[in-house]
Design a protein around this nucleic acid. Structure first.
Lengths: 252, 252
DNA sequence: TATGGTGGCGAACGCCATTCGCCATTATGG
DNA sequence: CCATAATGGCGAATGGCGTTCGCCACCATA
């Protein structure tokens, strides 16, 4: 006792890294006293993710998670210091480990695009990740694995190491933000006709005096139909970013 | 009674547009019966933003807002259907109306960059906006004012109307996401040395077997120091995006 | 067999968003 | 000038939440 914590890093992130380290040594754990644990971090996180996938992050309460596991609410606090810790663990687990080995093959541009798409798909599979309030840069083991892959691709460019880091956050952020846009096109439920309602509502409420360009755009039906939730929409921004990086690669 | 709402748009956004329309006709309101209102939407939203600016979005409870206004908690429900409505109103108010008239002057690229910086600064002034859980594309009057300005700049390019829309969301999302990265460099409080702690912690926990590129990068002190919260970091991604758009402008 | 750390849990606390019904206030129509 | 009806503020109450505390059963170790 009496020893102060050296780092002031939020405990959830530390927990995630400790769990990732423990995951490697499968059965090598030393025998611990006390009753055989009925709960485990993995089981808790898995249950929480199950609820979040089905009903959204708002539905994830410690009571709900405990109920899903058949234990008491307060038992969770033996494995997690606070709910925020659990959310960080959930984020990390949702940033699933990429299935195969690093793609490596192909041009750096294609490799980056592939990773961007994977990150994008990941957020579409677990949309609640985007509901986690402001969480800063990627910090958990699995999140940084994506960064590592992008760095591998960027090593084939002339970008400085510093710029490589910036490119990583640029692409990661783009994939994330674009998934967020696709998430809730104002109308909560439906997908395709959700966008219809979105544009319909906006067109009905934007006046030409204040929003002349928007109104002119919406006058043409062809422009009202998608707002960032089609594959082409995602590819558009991705191509712009990659083109910008390519220019930097050429001109130094 | 009995009439169904035609649009399923979340009421908070509708409220924001109605309030924006009412804001124009200052004293023209028809006389309404009932006691003279002590509260108003503007006062409520202003009080809520004050709390959020000072203590973060988590500190904004209806009780706190009511206390700041000297009224009872339940009185707020006369002006707002639910807390979510209030949050949308707050978002819109925080997306402050740009001070002067549209810049208009200069190259389209410079104009876009100026708007991007303004959006970025806005989110740094009201960081809690980034804590609002997944809110979809810009939808409120003030948010779309920024889009309108960007469209004005993009009108000087050869981009198709559809691509102009995509470029708007691309830049808006970038400014937003970059502000989010700068928000919480893992360590909650400090700014400059917060990044130090961030890199220090990561370097202490990433192993060369799984994160070889990161480890090699962090071996050079020059690369550990900023992660997206300096002006140069923001400009980097912005320049990549604008270069990508310029290429599209040239090559069609 | 004693020991001491461990994990599950019941009870309780304070905060939250939200609903309901009561009441004072006020413009309007007669 | 009065009756009406709509309006806005508020007290009381409800159910859910995260979190703390203390008790107790468990079990490897000495």
């Amino acid at each position: 006792m009496g020893e102060q914590h050296r780092t002031r890093t939020p405990s959830g992130i530390e927990l995630a890294w400790r769990a990732a380290r423990t995951r490697g040594e499968s059965g090598t754990g030393e025998a611990r006293s006390g009753p055989r644990p009925a709960l485990s971090l993995e089981r808790i996180v898995a249950a929480a993710i199950g609820i979040a996938d089905r009903e959204g992050l708002a539905a994830v309460s410690l009571a709900r998670v405990a109920a899903a596991l058949g234990s008491a609410t307060t038992s969770l606090y033996r494995h997690v210091r606070a709910k925020d810790d659990l959310v960080v663990l959930m984020r990390d687990a949702a940033a699933a480990p990429p299935s195969g080995p690093p793609p490596e093959a192909g041009h750096w541009r294609a490799a980056l695009a592939a990773v961007a798409w994977q990150i994008h798909d990941l957020h579409r599979r677990h949309p609640w990740v985007l509901s986690v309030p402001a969480s800063g840069p990627p910090s958990t083991p699995n999140e940084l694995l994506w960064g590592e892959r992008m760095l591998a691709a960027l090593a084939h460019t002339a970008l400085t190491p510093h710029d490589q880091l910036r490119a990583v956050t640029l692409i990661y952020g783009y994939a994330r933000e674009q998934a967020r846009l696709a998430l809730d096109p104002v109308v909560a439920g439906a997908g395709a006709d959700g966008a219809r309602d979105y544009f319909g509502f906006l067109a009905s409420v934007m006046t030409p005096d204040r929003y002349p360009r928007f109104c002119r755009l919406f006058a043409d039906e062809a422009n009202t139909g998608s707002i960032g939730h089609t594959a082409e929409d995602f590819q558009f921004g991705l191509d712009r970013i990659l083109a910008g990086l390519a220019e930097l690669d050429r001109d130094g």
